[in-house]
Design a protein around this nucleic acid. Sequence first.
DNA 1: AAAATAATTGCAAAATCTTGCAAAATACGT
DNA 2: ACGTATTTTGCAAGATTTTGCAATTATTTT
Lengths: 256, 256
Amino acid sequence: MQRKLLSPEREDLIVRALEAGMRTIAEFSAELGVSEATVRRDLQSLEATGRLRRVHGGAEPMTLDRRLEPLFNEKTSQMAAEKSRIAELALAQINDHDSIFLDGGSTVLALARHLNERRRLTVVTNSLSAAAELLETPHRLILLGGEFRPISRTLVGPLTAHLANELHINKAFMGTIGFSPAEGMSTTDPNEAYTKELIMRRADRVYLLADSSKIGVSSLVKSGTLADVDVLITEARLPQAVLHVLHKRKIEVITP
Amino acid sequence: MQRKLLSPEREDLIVRALEAGMRTIAEFSAELGVSEATVRRDLQSLEATGRLRRVHGGAEPMTLDRRLEPLFNEKTSQMAAEKSRIAELALAQINDHDSIFLDGGSTVLALARHLNERRRLTVVTNSLSAAAELLETPHRLILLGGEFRPISRTLVGPLTAHLANELHINKAFMGTIGFSPAEGMSTTDPNEAYTKELIMRRADRVYLLADSSKIGVSSLVKSGTLADVDVLITEARLPQAVLHVLHKRKIEVITP
DNA sequence: AAAATAATTGCAAAATCTTGCAAAATACGT
DNA sequence: ACGTATTTTGCAAGATTTTGCAATTATTTT
């Protein structure tokens, strides 16, 4: 049976223990003087509130504020399983010979890694990471030009418009830092936001790829509204309230 | 059976070990204290998240640059000394805060590697290899958008015009496959040629970087005439006849 | 072409996790 | 205080996941 609430006392103990370097269930159990089953339930609670991340065998501390864009090479592994599952769902939306856009971000990057399962796509992207992934594939690759933003490894800003306006994109697969039903999408950089909006307005069909850590989060700059999105792909079970809003906006939701 | 998720603890260990120079399965197995089969499954997970690249016998770290480089290695190693000589001469033509264009090709790439000796350049390029070289520099980097041409790792074709026409370039550093006083420059691909001509016509001052193996050679497609070039930088002692033509066309020649 | 080395896959053992349940602890109304 | 309702806990059975081994398949070397 799932518990209602974890006492803040033990919550502190666990978080403190985590910071001290403890990782395994056995360690926590010994430290807190409770059974392993209880530790697991504790970790379950803490994961639900986002204080830590559970893994087989124990737990690891959660990274800083998610509003700060993770440095690129850093935690692409965060939520890797979730991202990969989302990528598979997205892949199912792509047919051979489609002409698609790939946005920046690690979730979309996971999709790029799956594209060898399709034939002769035309892939437009502003992400150098995605491009690197596709260098050796037989797909046609078109890079959006523009100013390079090191932290996200994307090409962004007004210059991207000159090329984007010349292209016709069937399906755009977008990432985001935050997504909330009320505010829409948000990201950390105005130029990045500019390019995202530009692309979404030019694509026939816009897919937003967002793992559960993005839902309900707002970042600095608005980068598109709900009206810009046609389909939301996520691995999370969304709250009823969110689902209701999405349904009213005629946004399709794809989950595993 | 493929595993769900790799514990971050071991993930860190492997990545750390990789950075420390380990490469083979046996080494990882010894380091982590797990069987080789498990190491292989670990590497599989890490490759899926893009943290490394698996190779027969082990794994190697993956960076964008490393991935972009290999195709070039063959050509780069040929006449490496000459190209480097030329790059140094070209570097002397660049001042802090200049706004320059870098073309594709290994000679120009050698120049890109020297650019950390200047401050705050604005570098426009259509070469992914050059871009990879500049990813971590403090220079401002602008990529020309366009269709990706795998062999040269450049962005080429009519799409490049949309962005190029918006930019003002002080100095353009161009590579070429062939250069002859009679025919001008030539290259192997029409799209490549198109973009080269486009850039040269928009730059204030055009530098052609050509080692001696290029001089007197003609390739398939004309990519600009002598009139497009302001300066020829080469390491070779040019024949009197060639020098004479260049002088008549008011093309400056820079040699060691 | 054969031998050697490495990778993948199926399988079973070990470790870990989830869940139902009853006992213990806690909260709550009187 | 007392009894009852609610929540938490530990236990144990059953489900999952991870792991190492070994057989098979693939790749590289000789």
